[in-house]
Simulated assay, not measured.
Amino acid sequence: MEEVAVAHRNAKSTSDYVALSLLRMMRWGMDLATGYKHDKAVAKGQKDAKDAKSTSSMTEHKWLMRFVFLESVAGVPGMVAGMLRHLHSLRRMKRDNGWIETLLEESYNERMHLLTFLKIAEPGWFMRLMVLGAQGVFFNGFFVCYLLSPRTCHRFVGYLEEEAVITYTRTIQDLDAGKLPMFAKMQAPDIAVKYWNMPEGSRSMRDLLLYIRADESKHREVNHTLGNLDQKNDPNPYASKFEDESRPHPVKDIKYSRPQGWERDEAL
């Protein structure tokens, strides 16, 4: 989990550019809603977090509000995509080749992230209103977009998860730099300990952030990979068994990591 790193998949097609543009627009709105402000040099990796200006640092409260907003949005795509593929399977009276289970698992995992953070911080009426508005717009928008172009939607989610990895990486950097003293003393809530089966001695807030970042890195990989496949006919490689298990291939855990996703010829 310590080796999980920030990564970006370059846009290659019109579909990719559309997804990336939508993500950047959404990122602007998320930054505005959560009051996000971070030292640019630190964000680019050009300066250690310890040297960041205090006026640009994020507080524990701001980070938590960003987590809540992010996870409340991130839990939508998997459920919408899983629901639509479920209905599609019923209409066609054919199997879905394992996609539905992975998508629903993803939405459940994101919801657990949200429930974990809600044990730590209680959002105020303004944040709840922002989440309500964002979810209403995002759910319906994603629903329509998935009907039109599932590939673009999976690429969008891949880019969204890239941002999630960046968010948690920067939080860990701030924590290690001593800028988040409350987090440094905090232990993971019981819901997190049980969900991730966190061992004794590894239940700090930093450990929790590592677990969640690892989850997000896997979602990043999964959606970029799904975006590379034939949406109607290809099987889900994360629900498949490979003849040669010794060679690197898509897996549910982080044994074989491919941040930019697996290309179609590698995944099948």
Rank of each mutant, 00 (worst) to 15 (best):
L118S: 05
L118T: 10
L118H: 06
K119E: 15
K119V: 05
K119A: 13
A121I: 07
P123Y: 09
W125E: 15
M127E: 12
R128P: 01
L129V: 03
L129M: 13
M130D: 06
G133Q: 12
A134D: 01
Q135L: 01
Q135A: 10
Q135K: 14
V137C: 07
F138I: 09
F138S: 07
F138L: 11
N140D: 05
G141F: 09
F142V: 06
F143C: 04
V144E: 05
V144C: 05
C145S: 13
L147M: 12
L147A: 10
L147P: 00
L148Y: 11
L148F: 12
L148R: 10
L148E: 03
S149Q: 09
P150W: 05
C153I: 05
G158C: 11
L160I: 05
E161G: 03
E163A: 04
E163S: 08
A164I: 06
I166E: 09
T167Q: 12
Y168A: 02
Y168K: 01
T169C: 05
T169S: 14
T171E: 07
T171R: 02
T171V: 10
I172D: 02
Q173F: 03
Q173A: 14
D174N: 13
L175P: 06
D176R: 14
K179S: 05
K179H: 11
L180M: 12
P181R: 09
A184F: 03
A188P: 04
A188R: 08
A188Q: 08
D190I: 00
D190E: 15
K194W: 14
K194L: 10
Y195F: 15
W196P: 01
W196G: 02
N197L: 11
M198C: 13
M198W: 11
P199C: 06
E200P: 00
